[in-house]
Every structure is written in structure tokens, then in C-alpha cells.
Design a protein around this nucleic acid. Structure first.
Length: 852
RNA sequence: GGGGACGUGGCGGAACGGUAGACGCACCGGACUUAAAAUCCGUUGGCCGCAAGGCCGUGAGGGUUCGAGUCCCUCCGUCCCUACCA
């Protein structure tokens, strides 16, 4: 027997696939289409097994669907703009473009080595002018549609990266990449009007029935629709403004209002701050504490009494003070609220601190209105309204409707829907991104670059040695002429958020070389993506932006679908144990040896035998040095073993822990499979008919269970069924089965293994003497008659406890089973002396006897 | 504070409301070998028992059901997301 040699076999088959160009997808086909896409990688320069798992999953789906007769599109690209290239440029003085293209070349080779069934002819990179130039083209179209606008406003400024961050990119008051405390700065920014689509994006979630509920919930919460009332309070006495508008979702509690509060950056507050330095000082102080650290965050309500009063709209005899409060946000609703301390915890905290009245207006069921009052906990539960004039006695929802109707009738308010979602700030002050294709002209203002001047390319000699935007300080790049009047003008030096790059790449793959941004015919054929696979960390931002851009492009006539991804799967990460010396220094897995002493595992430094601390399994990261590269595995076991293992141990949506033992298990499976094909089947001896039938049945059962496991994304279960099937095929060698049956089993085995270990499968297929390559072979079908057993073993329960079993023909009726049951001497013995009350028979599954 | 997920052997994990622990890892025993590695075969939830067999067992407690890891309620724990959103 020849040992399976992946180092020889794997490259040979990859070359054969390349040679035959087997993974090229043609748009025109009589077959049904299937578009599989994994989230494209950032070209960091090195592939780790986390990538391998992501792409292996997509590859299983792609190869499976191809075998099942689909016309499969499975492309690959590069999310190639972004900060790491700039960091490399500023730290090491390399050219970001050269650095990126170099990394792409390296990673392409590593990906190819995984044996993925990718149509490389469609490869694209977002940093390629051929790509971002088309992005500029549709950006200008959205601009014409009014979906792009500039607005001056407070933005999140990252002082380390010297750039503006979207709200979503600020985590706990820090920049998501740099970790630096974010400052608030006033700048003119570019925005995409995603809020125009808020309702539609929310609505569309209902149609995405092949998305995880979790992701849909996260997007729903992110859009954050609420129904409420906008109402305007009139000032009492001398008034600086005509009135003060607030937003509430609890108009039923209006009679419990004891104060109004505006955000520190509300126009009213800014107005007052200009006149009164004490107000200015308060606002400044609040802003400093701002949205920062965790302690401050959960903490103290702070307020400033403006001295202004407004009149209660339902009771003109009541006057309500107006405060500036740190917990009111300018960018939600209208930046002003009324406080009803009895029924909102934040308002209550504020009222207690500043000694404002607390009037309950919702009476919990069973409470006495004469004695009910609120102490330190606001009452937010159900009840009936009281202390509220015309609302008295109503349930909360009814009272909301009545209050809104009254406010509308009296002309001071309007029922309103508000979304938490805000417009997408897309400008970045970065040099390594897609330039925003507009020109600033002193006469004409902001002028789009004319389409025939696209792409607006980045200069090749950007200087990243200083922080800030290298485009802005480039000597010549920004100087141009106005497309409208021809006078000297300056280019916009902001570039687009990289989330823009990734929000349409799936629409480019159908024809990655098209002159237009999107080849409509090709996109109409391929879209939507049938199965999209990626990390759950993109559940909100990337997926929401892609859904928005798809809608915008559809409205522009470039696409026909509203939802880009019909099916979504979010996969888990690959983790690895961490190792560190007593001194705290992290160690690479390769430098550590593990020894087992009884039940305990101990780690030692390979060279010196120094004892090492074994830490938790964590996401592979360079900083903890627990990274395993697929190449390391490929050198020893081949990539098939690596592919098999990352899919086998854990369900795909969960994290998988990389262990050397696990890979060895996969390697053993590969060798066992190979051994079956390498072995010549013993043909002497009498044919064992029963064993032959048993193997046939096992073959068809394996086909069915592997097929169903792949369809249900239960790759770990599919691999478990493969292990079982290989064991059965091996054991069948002990008896003499007919050559046809053995051949059927082996032909099925090769094809079932193919999506997971494609190189091995090809080698087996050839060894079997089948013509052509297995990538062209059809997926095996199972015969329902062979899958069903003739006879079944039914466990017998007495009063719910297993007490024995009987054999019954498959499909036996309840009456048949009962007859068999009472005919069984073992069972009869166990039932002796008991009165049988009831016999429950679940056909082909179980029998339960209720007896006393 | 809000939302969600999860909790099963030594470990990763299986299990349409129907024999809990498939499959893999690890461990232990055996075969092969001068020996080891590799490979192959076998054992392995706990307790009692020579055995046949019995009892207990899916975070804790209750409930629904002929039957619950699975459904419902309460609690405990872990993880993730989100957060002064009016």
C-alpha cells in the first residue's frame, strides 16, 4: 500500500483544474444559477486558518451546488483600501499601492493553495482605478439623485488617525481602530442619505427569511423606529425663540411633565451660552466629560437651569422650567425632551438630583391613587392614566392616541415616526481611499467631475510621513480646473469610507470587466447572492450599507434587486490556545511541546524544557502569537486535512478551537479513505449477499445524511457521517461483497468527500477508473427504498423508562407492534403483575406502555 | 439599563418532543514491532453488582406530557451585541 502523499497529489490536481479552467462561470446557461460569496478579505499579506475556514465553507457550498447541477458563480476580490497600508507607509516608508498589490499577490497564492473552486477571472481589488473609478461614476449618479449631501456638523475626530469617524466607528468614546479618545469637532462632511431608506430597510428585513434572526434583530434595533409626538411648548414671559419643540414616545405622560431639557449642543443652549459665560462653562464641562469612559458614562446626570419657563400645552396655568441636560442627545429626535420623572428612570434621577416635582400619572393596577407615589424607581409598567384631566382612566396606548389627536387638533404637535438610524458620513481625510470625484470652484461651488474625466486617480507619490491627509498637502494633485466654468479650482481631497467600497462589489462580479459600473444583464442573471458567508461582526454596518446601496442603485436603474443577499450565514472564528512564559512573554505554538501526564496537559518550551503556562483559547491574533497559518499545516498534512478539520469539530456558526490533535484526526480520515481506494478488493470466496445488501444500504444512507447535513450547513455532522461511512466500507472488506456494490460505495464515498477534501477526491476518482474529473461528476442520488430499513429495533418503555426492545418490520402499524410486544417473553416478564392502562406506539420509533 | 445566545462526559460536540452522549480528541488496554513512531482492534458518564441487571444523570428548582437535553415559568452562571435613543 502506498501512503497518500498530499504534497505530490494536491498541486497536481490544482494544476489540472487550472488547465481545464473548470471553475469559470458563464453567465449564459440553461442551468439554474447559484451565486456563492464569502466576504472578501483585507489583503493583510498573510492568510490564517480563520480565513481558511471562511473560504472552505463557501467552497463546500460551491462544489456541492456545482455537483447538484447548478451554474455556480464563486468569485474572489480584495477589500484593498484602508488604514493598514497607510500605517505601513508611514512606519516603513513603503508605497501603499505597492505594499497592497504585493500582499494581494501573496494572499492570492495562499488562497489558491487551499484548492478553492473560485473563478479567478473575475478577481477585483477595490484599490484598482478600474474598480473605484466605477464607484465614482455611480457616486455621481447618487449625487444627482440628491442622495449625497454636505453638511457642517459636529463630527467624531480621531486625534491619532487624524480622521473623522462615523458614530458606528466610535466604541465607548474611542476610535474603533486607534483606540484613541474621540474629540468632537466641527467640519463639513459628506453624507449619504441612508435615512431616506430607513423604512424600506426595516421592511425588507421581513423578506430575508434565510438570514439569521439575530442579524435581523440587530439591524432592526439599529434602525430603531419609534412612534411618538413632536410638540412645541410656548415660552412664558419674554421669549428668546417662538417656542421649543420636543419629541416624546410617551405623550400619555404629558401631565406628569416637570421639566424640559435640551441637549448641550441644542441651538437654544448655544444661544444662551453666547450671552452667559456660566452657561458656556457648563456646556464645555459637559462636553468634556461627554461620551467618554465607562465610569462617567453610566454616571451623574448634570443639568443647568436656564431660568426660562414654558407653558403646559394642555394646562395654560402650569409653567415648566427649561434645563440644559447632559443626558439629552442632539442627534436623536429633536434634541429636546420633556421630563416625566415618575415614569422614566433617567428623568427621575435628574429630578431627584435637582429637586424637581415627581407627579405620577400612570396608576398600576390595584394601587390606590390617593397613596401611590414614586420613590427611587420610576414606574414604567402598565396601568391607567390619572392626574391627567381628559386622559384620566385611559390605558396607556389609548391615552397616547388621544393625546396625539388633541395635540394635532390644537395645532401644537404632530404624531411622528423617528428613526435612530442617522445618515452615513462617508468622508475620510485619508490618502489611501477612493477620491470623492468633485471639484471646488470659487464661482460655481461644488461641481461634479464630468463622467468622461473619471476615474479621478490617486497620485502615485503620496507622502505618508506626516499625520493628516496626504492628498490635501500633495503639491499638484488637487489643482485642476472647474468642469463648469474652466477656472482654476481644487479637487475634493476627502476619500470615501471603505464601507462604500464593499457595499457593491458583489454587483461588480457578474461582469468584473464591464465598462459601466454594473453590467445590468449579467447582474440581473446572477443577483441576488444566493449564499453570503462572513463574520457576524459585519452584522450591522457592512450588511446595512450594502442593502442601502443596492436600493439606491436599483432606484437609479443599475440593478433590479433591492436585497443583495438572499441567504446569509455568519460563521464563527478559529481560536487557539495561548502560551506564555512565566515572565509573561507570549509564545508561538510551534515553539511549545505539550506532554500529557495522566489527565493533565503540561506545556514546555521545546528548546529548554522551561515550563509554560497554557492559557485560554482565543481568537488568533498576532499580539498573542497564537496564529496558525494554513501553509504550516499544508506542509505536513496537506490542505485537505486542514479544510476537513476546520469544518469538522464545531458547528460552523460557533467558534472552533484549532488543536493539533484535531488535524491529526482529519489526516487519519484522509488516509483511511485513500486506503479503501488503494486496496484491491478481495474477489475470492463466495459472495455474501446479506453483507452486499447491507453495504448498499449504508451507502445510500450515507448519501442522504451527508447531503442533508450540507444543505443544512451542518458541516460538522456531514464530516461525522463520512467517518462512519468510511468505517463501514472498511469493515465490509471482512466479507465478500459484489464488486458492483463495492464500486458503488467507493464512487459515492469519493463524491461525498469531494466538497471537503477535493484533491483527495480527485485522486480517488481517478484510482477508481472513473472518467474525467470529479469536479464534473454529478452528486450521487439515494434510493429511498434502500435508505429505509426493513426491520427496526423499537425501544420499549414502561412508564417512560427504557425496559427492553423489540424488532418490528419497518412501517408496522400500532396494532402490529402491540401484538409483537405482548408476544415478547422478556417484555411479558417485565409487565407481570402490572395493569396495562395504555400503549403508545410511535411507528418506527418507540413504544411506551403505561401500567400500574 | 435594553436585546440576544448559550449551559450535555476529561475536552470539542451529536440528538424531527421518542434508546442522551453520534462523530472526533484525549486517556486506558490489546495486536504488530527488538523497541518506538505510525497503523489496526477494543474499553471509557457516575454509583452499586462476580454477573444478569439496577439506580442516578443534559446548570438549579417547578410545570406541561404516556414520554422533556428539547416546550413553559422562576432562578443561577457564561458569552455576544447595544446603550443616557426620550
Amino acid at each position: 500500500m502506498v501512503r497518500y502523499n498530499p504534497k505530490e497529489v494536491e498541486p497536481r490536481w490544482r494544476a489540472a483544474w487550472d488547465e481545464a479552467d473548470v471553475f469559470r462561470a458563464e453567465t449564459d446557461s440553461s442551468k439554474p444559477k447559484y451565486y456563492v460569496l464569502e466576504m472578501f478579505p483585507y489583503p493583510s499579506g498573510s492568510l490564517h486558518v480563520g480565513h481558511a475556514r471562511n473560504y472552505a465553507m463557501g467552497d463546500v457550498v460551491a462544489r456541492f451546488k456545482r455537483a447538484r447541477g447548478f451554474n455556480v458563480l464563486h468569485p474572489m476580490g480584495w477589500d484593498a483600501f484602508g488604514l493598514p497600508a497607510e500605517n505601513a507607509a508611514s512606519e516603513r516608508g513603503v508605497d501603499p499601492a505597492a505594499w497592497t498589490w504585493d500582499n494581494i499577490a501573496k494572499m492570492r497564492e495562499e488562497l489558491k493553495r487551499l484548492g478553492l473552486s473560485i473563478d479567478w477571472s473575475r478577481e477585483l481589488a477595490t484599490c484598482d482605478p478600474a474598480y473605484y473609478g466605477r464607484q465614482q461614476a455611480w457616486f455621481l449618479k447618487l449625487m444627482e439623485r440628491g442622495l449625497v449631501y454636505r453638511k457642517e456638523g459636529l463630527v467624531n475626530w480621531d486625534p491619532v488617525d487624524m480622521t473623522v469617524l462615523a458614530n458606528e466607528q466610535v466604541i465607548d468614546g474611542r476610535g474603533w481602530r486607534s483606540g484613541a479618545m474621540v474629540e468632537r469637532r466641527k467640519l463639513t462632511q459628506w453624507f449619504l442619505r441612508i435615512t431616506d431608506y430607513a423604512e424600506d430597510l426595516l421592511d425588507g428585513l421581513k423578506t430575508l427569511d434565510r438570514w439569521p434572526d439575530k442579524v435581523r434583530t440587530m439591524q432592526e434595533n439599529w434602525i430603531g423606529k419609534s412612534q411618538g409626538l413632536r410638540l412645541t411648548f410656548q415660552f412664558a414671559g419674554e421669549s428668546p425663540e417662538s417656542g421649543l419643540e420636543v419629541y416624546t414616545t410617551r405623550p400619555d405622560t404629558l401631565f406628569g411633565a416637570s421639566f424640559l431639557a435640551v441637549a448641550p449642543d441644542h441651538p437654544l443652549a448655544e444661544n444662551l451660552a453666547q450671552k452667559d459665560p456660566r452657561v458656556a462653562a457648563f456646556v464645555a464641562e459637559v462636553r468634556r466629560g461627554g461620551t467618554s469612559e465607562a465610569e462617567i458614562e453610566s454616571a451623574e446626570k448634570q443639568g443647568w437651569d436656564t431660568g426660562l419657563k414654558v407653558i403646559h400645552p394642555f394646562d395654560s396655568t402650569r409653567q415648566i422650567p427649561v434645563w440644559i441636560a447632559n443626558f439629552v442627545l442632539m442627534d436623536y429626535g429633536v434634541g429636546a425632551i420633556f421630563g416625566c420623572p415618575a415614569h422614566d428612570q433617567r428623568d427621575l434621577d435628574f429630578a431627584r438630583k435637582y429637586d424637581l416635582p415627581v407627579t405620577p400619572v400612570v396608576l398600576p393596577v390595584g394601587e390606590d391613587p390617593a397613596v401611590f407615589h414614586v420613590k427611587q424607581e420610576a414606574y414604567v409598567g402598565p396601568g391607567r392614566i390619572f392626574n391627567s384631566a381628559f386622559l384620566d382612566g385611559l390605558e396607556i396606548e389609548a391615552a397616547k392616541a388621544v393625546a396625539i389627536a388633541r395635540a394635532e387638533a390644537d395645532g401644537f404637535g404632530k404624531g411622528t415616526t423617528v428613526y435612530r438610524l442617522r445618515d452615513w458620513g462617508v468622508a475620510r481625510q485619508r490618502g489611501w481611499g477612493c477620491p470623492i470625484p468633485v471639484v471646488h470652484c470659487s464661482d460655481c461651488g461644488v461641481v461634479p467631475v464630468s463622467p468622461d474625466q473619471l476615474p479621478v486617480e490617486l497620485p502615485v507619490d503620496l507622502d505618508f510621513s506626516k499625520p493628516g491627509n496626504p492628498l490635501a498637502r500633495h503639491a499638484t494633485w488637487k489643482h485642476t480646473s472647474c468642469p463648469k466654468c474652466g477656472a482654476a479650482a481644487e479637487r475634493e481631497t476627502d476619500t470615501l469610507d471603505t464601507f462604500v467600497d464593499s457595499s457593491w462589489y458583489f454587483a461588480r462580479f457578474p461582469n468584473a470587466g464591464a465598462a459601466e459600473p454594473i453590467d445590468k444583464a449579467a447582474a440581473d442573471y446572477w443577483l441576488p447572492v444566493d449564499q453570503y458567508i462572513g463574520g457576524v461582526e459585519h452584522a450591522v454596518l457592512h450588511l446595512l450599507y450594502a442593502r442601502f446601496v443596492t436600493r439606491a442603485l436599483a432606484d437609479e436603474g443599475l440593478l433590479s434587486v433591492k436585497e443583495p443577499f438572499a441567504g446569509l450565514f455568519t460563521q464563527g472564528m478559529v481560536t487557539h490556545e495561548t502560551y506564555r512564559r512565566q515572565s509573561g512573554e507570549w509564545l508561538e505554538p510551534g515553539s511549545v511541546v505539550i506532554r500529557t501526564e495522566g489527565a493533565h496537559r503540561r506545556a514546555f518550551l521545546a528548546d529548554t524544557d522551561e515550563p509554560i503556562v497554557i492559557g485560554e483559547a482565543e481568537k488568533m491574533s498576532k499580539s498573542k502569537r497564537n496564529v496558525v497559518a494554513p501553509a504550516d499545516i499544508a506542509d505536513v498534512y496537506g490542505v485537505d486535512a486542514a479544510r476537513l478539520f476546520v469544518l469538522s469539530d464545531s458547528p460552523p456558526e460557533r467558534d472552533v478551537q484549532w488543536t493539533s490533535g484535531g488535524v491529526e484526526g482529519a489526516w487519519r480520515l484522509i488516509n483511511r479513505v485513500w486506503a479503501e481506494f488503494d486496496e484491491t478488493s478481495p474477489s475470492d470466496g463466495e459472495i455474501d449477499v446479506a453483507a452486499s445488501l447491507a453495504l448498499r444500504r449504508a451507502t445510500h444512507k450515507a448519501i442522504k445524511s451527508v447531503t442533508e447535513a450540507i444543505e443544512g450547513f451542518r458541516f460538522n455532522s456531514a464530516v461525522a457521517r463520512l467517518y462512519e461511512f468510511v468505517a463501514i466500507v472498511r469493515n465490509a472488506r471482512a466479507s465478500t461483497v459484489t464488486p458492483e456494490v463495492r464500486r458503488e460505495a467507493l464512487a459515492a464515498l469519493a463524491r461525498l468527500v469531494a466538497p471537503f477534501a477535493p484533491h483527495l477526491a480527485e485522486e480517488c476518482w481517478r484510482r477508481l477508473g472513473e472518467g474525467g474529473m470529479i469536479v464534473h461528476a454529478a452528486w450521487p442520488a439515494w434510493d429511498a427504498n434502500l435508505v429505509a430499513d426493513e426491520e427496526r429495533i423499537l425501544p420499549v418503555q414502561i412508564n417512560g423508562k427504557r425496559r427492553g426492545e423489540i424488532r418490528a418490520p419497518s412501517g408496522a402499524t400500532a396494532a402490529d407492534v402491540e401484538a409483537l410486544l405482548f408476544a415478547d417473553p422478556e417484555i411479558a416478564k417485565k409487565l407481570e403483575g402490572l395493569t396495562i392502562r395504555k400503549v403508545i406506539v410511535v411507528p418506527d420509533r418507540i413504544v411506551n406502555v403505561v401500567a400500574a
